[in-house]
């Protein structure tokens, strides 16, 4: 009886799943704060805007998306959430020749083709990133249709997806997880905290980013990055990310 109930529900719900990456993310999938903040076009960034930013993401020469926590205070300074949603990058803006800048040229796991197994490690997050990452497996995003799966053991994983700002207590566990993953492997630092501490940057007992501990292939900015941004990063690892058609 129950089974027929479920079947009926499944049939009547229709298809919930996004068409991303074949189509751009819909407004429902990416609310305003999912987009990158951009300074008002054609105007130099004012000192008041630089001062308004609580995490020093705004500098006179541009916005460091890796630091931005989407607090929206810069909106009062004429900024707008109008940039792209998918921002995964292979290099940290503040560290152009850092250890990771040389990595990530091309898709590091392209040879894995259509199947990617992801191991999620939390090293000190607020849970928002964890839940956003996990939600790519939920019906609206359904990562399994793209060959992306979560795995419960690093031994079966291809990707180490790290969320949160690394605490001292999690340094060794993170290193162990990295060691336990067989090659070829990639590391994705997801969220402002994992990249360089986010709003907690500089707190006592915290590392300033995952790449202090393990080599990172991709940084996914956002606080937290929306599920489509996580999907984009994982697809980027195997060279199947959405590319905008040239206009």
């Amino acid at each position: 009886m129950t089974m027929f109930g479920w079947l009926g529900r499944s049939a009547t719900r229709g298809i919930l799943t996004t068409r991303y990456p074949d189509a751009p993310p819909s407004p429902a999938e990416a609310p305003v704060s999912a987009h990158a903040p951009e300074p008002p076009p054609g105007v130099a960034i004012a000192a008041s805007a630089v001062n308004a930013c609580p995490v020093r993401a705004i500098a006179p020469d541009g916005v460091d998306q890796c630091r931005c926590i989407r607090c929206a205070r810069c909106l009062a300074q004429g900024f707008e959430f109008s940039g792209p949603v998918a921002l995964a990058t292979a290099a940290r803006a503040d560290r152009p020749d850092g250890p990771s800048a040389t990595r990530g040229a091309g898709a590091p796991l392209a040879r894995l083709g259509r199947s990617l197994h992801v191991f999620l490690v939390d090293v000190g997050s607020c849970n928002a990133c964890n839940l956003e990452v996990l939600s790519i497996a939920h019906p609206q995003y359904d990562a399994s249709r793209l060959g992306i799966f979560f795995t419960n053991s690093p031994r079966h994983a291809d990707v180490l997806l790290v969320v949160g700002v690394p605490t001292e207590a999690m340094v060794e566990p993170l290193r162990r997880a990295y060691e336990a993953i067989p090659a070829p492997k990639a590391v994705v630092a997801t969220g402002a905290c994992a990249i360089r501490g986010g709003v907690f940057e500089g707190n006592a007992g915290l590392r300033s980013g995952v790449d202090e501990i393990v080599p990172v292939d991709l940084y996914v900015p956002g606080c937290p990055p929306p599920p489509v941004a996580v999907l984009d990063a994982l697809l980027r690892l195997i060279g199947r990310e959405r590319t905008e058609a040239p206009t």
Binding site: E172, P173, L174, R176, E179, P182, A183
Partner: peptide
């Protein structure tokens, strides 16, 4: 074929 010896995985604990 490269062989790498790693310690057993115990959910991050030593």
């Amino acid at each position: 074929r490269r062989t790498r010896t790693v310690e057993p995985w115990m959910a991050g604990s030593p």
